[in-house]
Design a protein around this nucleic acid. Sequence first.
DNA 1: AATCGAATAGAAAGGTCGTTCTATATAAAA
DNA 2: TTTTATATAGAACGACCTTTCTATTCGATT
Lengths: 184, 184
Amino acid sequence: MSRSVKKETLLNVAERLFYEHGFRGVGLKQIISEANVATMTLYNHFSSKDQLVEEVLKQREERYWSYLDAHVEMDSDSPFILAVEAHGRWLKEQSYQGDMFLRAIEDYAGTDNEIENIARGHKSKLLKYFQELAQRKGIENERDLANQFTLLLEGTTSMTTLIGAEKATEHSIAMARTIVQHTS
Amino acid sequence: MSRSVKKETLLNVAERLFYEHGFRGVGLKQIISEANVATMTLYNHFSSKDQLVEEVLKQREERYWSYLDAHVEMDSDSPFILAVEAHGRWLKEQSYQGDMFLRAIEDYAGTDNEIENIARGHKSKLLKYFQELAQRKGIENERDLANQFTLLLEGTTSMTTLIGAEKATEHSIAMARTIVQHTS
DNA sequence: AATCGAATAGAAAGGTCGTTCTATATAAAA
DNA sequence: TTTTATATAGAACGACCTTTCTATTCGATT
């Protein structure tokens, strides 16, 4: 179906442009142009720019979790380290320019829309993910450890802007190892 | 002088609004309106919106370092922990809505302007700050430790969006202590 | 062959953006 | 007192924004 192809193209082009220049920094004109699509084709598939942003975020969230699930064996010896490593590889492959979800939360904060909810949902899922990992390992303060590892991932993402994904991940893994070793 | 007062008002109002809604999310109209100032007053003190952004960033950077310098005794027993604590208090007092410098880097990336340079300058100063702290303590891999603590601060800032400044800081300090204890 | 959905280019509407301009007021400096 | 600098409100500019509309083309289904 030609329909699906155009829609997917739009989603991919929009995701890339939003990622590179921010939601407010990219106009529909540019998206339409780079996707080689007519204005009405976009409005046929998405009711508004905001809804396009929502679907881009949903797509990106799916991709992130697929990536993590593919690289983290939850029952391995050190699933925490694997998760940090996987996150680092994800960042590297993205040729990183910031965290799209954090940006969404900030850009659309206080405007009471669905976009912020989706982005926050992704972040709380990350917390839950580490909690589950900690529970499987029978770690006492699973909530504390989950928060700490989420903080490490967030820090890695930010640091990537400054020193690149590889170095940021190295430092993150070093800290992760130390923390795992010295936690109940 | 009435001149300085207006300029300061503009800088403060702009900083608050940029912080709350992002650089691209705030128009000059709103800044002018909330500062109770005429359009030409703004253009009298700032040559463009971009230059206003630059000066806001410079002002914010100054404030940040004043705050850190005031709270961190560099020759104390644990200057690293003090720095993490001070950063946490700073975040709490800002009623946090993101990191303005990271946002500036992302929003203006690739447009080859002064804004990105200022923001990146602040971040590399943070790295240097921790390097100097590590050197004073005679720590071997001062660069590694500096990177790790910068990563912790960045993570704390991001996590504040999700769980609040106090909890984020607690987790950050916990990790900081563990790392300090088990480093050279 | 006729029909229908979906795509197309492009104009247009209605708004906001950053910036400049006009014309005037105020208050200190000369 | 005259000059100068700085303030004011508000209109105007051109550019861009999101969204809607028009008019046309293309291919597959009937």
